[in-house]
Design a protein around this nucleic acid. Structure first.
Lengths: 116, 116
DNA sequence: ATTAAATTTCGGTGTATAACGAAATGAAAT
DNA sequence: ATTTCATTTCGTTATACACCGAAATTTAAT
């Protein structure tokens, strides 16, 4: 694999909001509007972050009715992707924003979120 | 450690030229003009890349007469920095540009390089 | 079929950054 | 002290990207 592509993998991880998304998805699969609610960003912004993570191979998507579920790509054959995903729980654990995020996704419910 | 700072660590690794520099420094310590010769960039550009890697904690510098030697920071207490440095040899091994770099640093000599 | 809702794509804006050459800095040799 | 040489800093330019709101798309429900 070319070094430019490895660099792109690290670039995908170089944004705090994308790291927060990965941490949340390591708890459970989430739709765009749930992530949007927690991060307090525009839906389009979250969608673009998800697109970056997906292109890099860190996450995959799954259609679920009117929602799109995003989840961690546990089956990646790329060594970097696989190791990064397995290291993330140890590397990022005590950040206050992340802790708050992980609390929120327990109470977040896609059925009364998006159209208010 | 805040997640913004973790993101910065990945950002430091998100540039192909900086990855190439790290790979070279894992062979031996190098001065700015040697790295410049191998990467074929402006000296100022290389200096800035080194500054990014140093601020992130991946490398350290050492004065050596009129030269400045840069070397891998093997003593980092940051888990991410330490693991990334130890993983790099496995993650990036077969890239043609990197292989060429590693060959070049064997023949590169700071004493007849910079002022030609 | 039409409407409604979730998501993606698009256009625009401001900021970050990779690159360069030139000027400034610092150290060594004359 | 002055010159030389390696490196850093600065000013500039071009590109990348994070963000938003609006428009387009896709899917579900009426």
């Amino acid at each position: 694999m070319l070094i430019e592509e490895k660099a792109k993998l690290f670039k995908a991880l170089s944004d705090p909001n994308r790291l927060r998304i990965l941490k949340m998805l390591q708890i459970r699969k989430l739709c765009v509007c749930e992530i949007t609610e927690v991060l307090d960003l525009a839906t389009s912004t979250v969608s673009e972050h998800l697109s970056v993570l997906k292109k890099a191979g860190f996450i995959i998507e799954e259609k679920d009715g009117k929602w799109v579920n995003y989840m961690i790509n546990t089956g990646s054959s790329d060594t970097v992707v696989a190791s990064m995903l397995s290291m993330l729980p140890f590397w990022i654990s005590s950040d206050p924003a992340v802790s708050s995020d992980l609390n929120k996704i327990n109470s977040v419910d896609r059925n009364n979120l998006c159209s208010r």
